[in-house]
Amino acid sequence: MKMTPAYKKAQGNMAPGVITAGGFLGDDERDIKDIITEDEELMEYFSLDYEKVCTTLEYLLDQGERGLGEFTTVDETWLVRTLEARGHLPCPFEDGIHRKITCEAVNIKNNRKILFSTISIHLLREHHFHEGKGSEFRLDPEALKKVLNI
């Protein structure tokens, strides 16, 4: 899959130490275009719609804020904790900045967990980028299916 200059720039921005200390790629050495293509196929396989996933993630992040920094039970389905760290992060695709709000969501029924942030939702919605394998913030399509229950 061909990497445009914009994708090459974004991939550079995703390396550890550029925007975040840990970066966005984990152990994944593939081009981000390949990561995106494979994840798009997996989203289709699991019948997951990007907009619906992003709306659900936003809902959990908002509900988590009710816990005031502690875990809180949401809809008897999830245990959610939303935390905010100081400052903002620019998107590696250089199309905006985002507050550093992170959210852990655990599906109480199957104990599957995801970790995401405001920038993760933007990356998913606008760029279909789930982060590389091994990244702590990777939103693996299978995990999304299991945790979000959609």
Binding site: I19, T20, A21, A85, R86, G87, H88, L89, P90, K100
Partner: peptide
């Protein structure tokens, strides 16, 4: 400085 000079904390 909370970000070590990456321009992401504003401190």
């Amino acid at each position: 400085s909370a970000c070590g000079g990456r321009g992401s904390c504003g401190a």
